[in-house]
Design a protein around this nucleic acid. Structure first.
Lengths: 330, 330
DNA sequence: CTGAAAGCGCTTACAG
DNA sequence: CTGAAAGCGCTTACAG
């Protein structure tokens, strides 16, 4: 079946292999009659150019590397969906790379470069500015275009697609304040993610503006760990508002609150981040900030295609809109 | 940096490029002294072999293709995690392919073959036996090893890693029957997935054995669609037990039941499939069948590595264990 | 143990 | 518009 090579096609069509190659890559240079004949043979033989050989000869692999740190996080698959759809549209293949240790990040990056991808998409929300600097230098040295997706960096040069997490944190906090909450906690993660830092920044700004004291409670994203944390929390803390950096944390907090006799939203208002299925499946349903994860993936990939084709890009720092989805918990 | 080629290394080490290649691929054939010298130069120059050139010359790309139909499903990312971990261990790269239309499946498969991957992992739970037949033939013709992950096929030849969905469906139904439920519904999807068919098969078997009438209610996985379905359901149906093919469907059903005055588990018992976070975040917490998604990915990938290296594999149809996680909803 | 040479399946100037 | 030839960066028999 499709183990025919370009020589087989050339032979059967009575042309040289150069002409077959042109039919595929710059058809306008081939006389229509010849082109049609070659195309016919290609179809009959089920010929598909060997992508590897083409990659070596042309020095373009039409492959992008997608780098992910924690692949098991739910939002990743949705973002991959956006990436895959756009990649397909522009005929790029996707190679997946996972990074575990901060330790071997450099080694992994070198491997990725050796894989000869035409561009790189870096998905990550827990990168420090130092990491970003390292990655940036690495890719620049090898002249390989890259885009960060859903990374909150302060570097003004790095191509990024994200939302404005500071603003989102600010807005949702403001909303609770307007509803007369005074003791508003931010439920964040013990591990520092750059995007959570931004949410905290927005939260803190709103609190300080309202002359309220910012209070950040750090716990784990793992329900079995945060549940006991929240139990002790309710034992001795006054709280009438809470914003969690993830929906799942918000729902876990909400359930514990109800167990402890709190009425939501009457005397405790809760909001989450990400607007996942958790938000609609909780009782009461959760107000949450919708983050266009699919779009972040798709727009990143689109931006990367432009960069790979050296197109002029007016803006390499793209902020996508978020919005608050109002439900019953506020 | 790492734009050095094998020629640069050979030159700097005073050997031929063949020797450099041997140091990398069959070091035992090279005198230790020479090997050490070459290795030193490789390190100094930061040389990494061009993966594409190697792929062309050796006809092995050390890349596996992972084919996914619905990439946005939550279980996919966990399965990818298992795949990625094992792939890394055995030094394989992962190329991702998504299939949308049943229509162009053949075309996509041909593309994948043209990508010269050494093996293919097919993740899918909605394949018909006819599709499986097609895919099988395609890959066999091109002599490319493959494994189906989480696919329920009846074909006894196809390499597969999955759980016994019939048994799981049977066991959970039996459990409800033992708890004296009589009117037990299976909440399944309108769209037919092969794994859901298996769950239905097990459910039906248990019901018939107990001389109860099997009743399958088909709805959507989308909460906004199934919620109104469930509202009308409760308007005129007697039910004291329900098994949903997914946790999210179970939780949606559970919430609607409670809204309609049902007491769970007192007069309605509910179970789900997959044991996701939804199960622990619902009130009451959901009893669910745990499916080792990460393991399915990891074991599939491991099996594929064996197949790619033409190792003798005693068993190419692997059934992983599942178990019922008992919580409050039963 | 090592090197010279052919070859993997393409692309792409260079002639004509 | 088309063909002959060099080359992409490796691997791998084949000699020695």
């Amino acid at each position: 079946m499709s183990n025919a090579t370009i020589y087989d096609v050339a032979g059967a069509a009575g042309v040289s292999l150069a002409t077959v190659s042109r039919v595929l890559n710059s058809p306008e240079k081939v006389k229509e009659e010849t082109r049609l004949r070659v195309l016919k043979v290609i179809k009959e033989l089920g010929y598909r150019p060997n992508v590897i050989a083409r990659g070596l000869a042309s020095r373009k692999t039409t492959t992008v590397g997608v780098v992910i740190s924690d692949i098991t996080r739910a939002s990743v698959s949705e973002m991959l969906g956006g990436i895959a759809d756009i990649a397909e549209k522009y005929k790029y293949s996707i190679k997946l790379f996972t990074i575990h240790d901060e330790a071997d990040v450099l080694d992994t990056l070198q491997n990725i470069v050796a894989e000869q991808v035409d561009g790189i998409l870096y998905l990550n929300d827990e990168l420090s500015d130092k990491d970003v600097e390292l990655i940036k230098r690495m890719f620049n040295e090898n002249k390989i275009p890259y885009v960060f997706a859903n990374v909150a960096t302060s570097d003004p040069i790095v191509p990024t697609v994200s939302i404005d997490y500071v603003k989102a944190g600010y807005e949702i906090t403001k909303k609770l304040i307007e509803k007369n909450c005074k003791d508003i906690y931010l439920l964040s993660t013990a591990r520092r993610y750059s995007v959570n830092d931004k949410k905290e920044e927005g939260y803190t700004k709103a609190m300080v503006e309202a002359k309220l004291e910012p209070m950040i409670f750090r716990t784990s994203g793992d329900t079995s760990i945060n549940k006991p944390h929240f139990e002790t929390f309710f034992a001795d803390i006054n709280v009438d508002g809470a914003i969690a950096v993830r929906d799942s944390i918000a729902v876990s907090f909400l359930n514990t609150a109800i167990n402890n006799g709190k009425k939501v939203p009457e005397n405790l208002k809760i909001a989450g981040f990400q607007n996942t299925k958790y938000a609609t499946l909780s009782r009461p349903e959760l107000t949450s900030i919708d983050i266009p994860v699919y779009d972040i993936g798709a727009v990143s990939m689109r931006l990367l295609t432009k960069l790979m084709q050296s197109q002029d890009v007016e803006n390499t720092r793209i902020i996508l809109p978020h919005r608050i989805i109002n439900r019953e918990s506020i």
